[in-house]
Design a protein around this nucleic acid. Structure first.
Lengths: 295, 295
DNA sequence: CGGGGCCATAAACGCGGCTTATGATCGCTG
DNA sequence: CAGCGATCATAAGCCGCGTTTATGGCCCCG
């Protein structure tokens, strides 16, 4: 069994026919035909049914493709690990976050870490909604502040921060001058949401269903904080956010009002077993120590 | 990057020199020299320092080897997944357990599962101490009853069963006729233990440290329940076990006495994401339903 | 100072996967 | 219903690359 065969397999499954997969892989169609056949013969099980119009995975094929794509991912991770060492190895730590991260803790953590590890450098990496976990898994960052809920499978995590949530409104909005609002008072307002994160994440953020059983009115989609705030400022929708966003993204055309009856945001610090280095451990310790004093 | 190179890499790291690794892999030594060199050049980082006497991994090498061995494992899992489909695919479920498993629940679960899935067959697989988790990870079983504590990384788990613990003694032992004993009363007795499980597991079972701060007297090692009971029957040591063992391994030369002041055993039902099939889900559901009524 | 470990290099061989060319089958369509 | 345009399979030839054996250089130790 060759890594190449597994890559081919995944591509074939993705494209649903040999020809397109071949073009995507920059090889000829018979190469895939041959590779697939030899893999099936080695594994002793038919992976794809051939039909005019394409190929379709058998039950065995589906499972094998799943396992194969994981194997390919791990192989790519080998290259990522090596690439990291080729560059800067034990001197720089890449920290992922989204939007306002974990608020002040993000900055304090960086300072504390710099104090403890004078030789090291922190590279902050900003991500769109829900992208940090994936980035951790494929080695694009070493550690990340993740907004919960999130899919933390395959990652180690510590909850390090919580903060109340607020609603973001355009100035002049009927609720903009309130001291605080209940989530049900926003029921009729179109709410920003995203397709980048899993449904559970979206529902948690949107408080769906609402305490009164109703469903939020879904507004425009967005991929990141700037897109979200732009739409809110335009008056196209409102958004929910952690309170730190009010200070980190202060804009004259936005108003922020505390939500009085929703769970606070919890932020986890996460990292992957596969990229756990001395620097990662050091950062986790620094943040954990700060998190204890914070609460 | 080829799977073969990664396998070579892991073997080189294991053996610490090219010659022995080559013999283990049934290839010539220059083949490894060439493969290692080409991989290092592809990754752009030196993986092993060459010394007279052998090779030793660099910092980068250690990380890359770790990632590589995981990649190799996932590739082997592809073959395991295929092998499963080649055999019996969606008809038989392999259930791992050790010793008395989860007691009656093990049997009841099997019956309930058979009732719900008339076409399916259960293959029980017995393991030595602490081996089930590994077996789950490399696909030798689909699901397993795991005695906690255990390393469940990479697995999904539900705690489904708890039972009190007992001490196993040879008949005629000074404590054999008691209604119950405190763990500290066994302080002077040599206690069975194992090297197959992680230290934390051994300590938990041995109740180390004891409530009075002392350390158990370590007796003979053993790999599985039969070996353990054999030594206990001989009078070479005593053992701690879940109470179900008293009825599942009733021997005329053994006595079982409840431990009055130790935590009960907890049993998790575990399975791997990578081998989650309809049958696995069905079994988990069946066991979960039974577990609810059990408590 | 010689022998025996180690790894690196060189040269030749041969397997295996690639390519292009072509065949077989199906389904759509005018 | 014939023909076109998809699909995947097969055939034949090429050539890259990883293997082998043979050899060299290095270091340590007796």
């Amino acid at each position: 069994m060759e890594l190449r065969q597994l890559r081919y397999l995944v591509a074939i499954d993705e494209h649903g026919n040999l020809g397109r997969a071949a073009r995507a892989l920059f090889v000829s169609q018979p190469a895939l035909s041959y590779a697939l056949k030899s893999l099936e013969s080695e594994l002793g099980v038919r992976l794809f049914e051939r039909t005019p119009g394409g190929v379709v995975a058998t039950a065995a094929g589906r499972d094998v493709v799943r396992a194969a794509s994981e194997a390919v991912r791990r192989a790519d991770l080998v290259a990522a690990v090596a690439a990291r060492h080729r560059r800067d190895a034990d001197r720089v730590l890449r920290v992922g976050f989204e939007a306002s991260g974990a608020g002040e803790l993000t900055t304090k953590a960086r300072a504390e870490f710099a104090r403890r590890h004078p030789g090291a450098r922190v590279e902050p990496k900003r991500f769109d909604w829900g992208e940090e976990a994936e980035a951790l898994r494929d080695g694009r960052v070493d550690v990340a502040f993740v907004w919960l809920p999130a899919d933390l499978a395959g990652l180690r995590s510590v909850v390090v921060h919580t903060e109340p949530r607020v609603v973001g409104l355009p100035v002049g909005h009927r609720l903009a001058d309130r001291e605080g609002v209940s989530v049900v008072e926003t029921n009729g307002e179109p709410l920003m949401w995203t397709e980048r994160a899993p449904r559970a994440w979206v529902d948690w953020w949107a408080v769906n269903p609402r305490p009164d059983g109703s469903e939020p009115l879904w507004g425009p989609k967005n991929d990141n904080v700037e897109e979200m705030l732009e739409q809110v400022a335009e008056g196209a929708a409102i958004c929910f956010a952690p309170s730190s966003m009010a200070s980190y993204y202060a804009r004259p055309d936005l108003a922020w009002v505390p939500l009085t009856d929703v769970e606070p945001l919890r932020v986890a610090l996460s990292w992957s077993d596969d990229t756990e280095t001395a620097l990662v451990r050091g950062f986790v310790e620094a943040v954990s120590d700060l998190a204890v004093t914070e609460t």
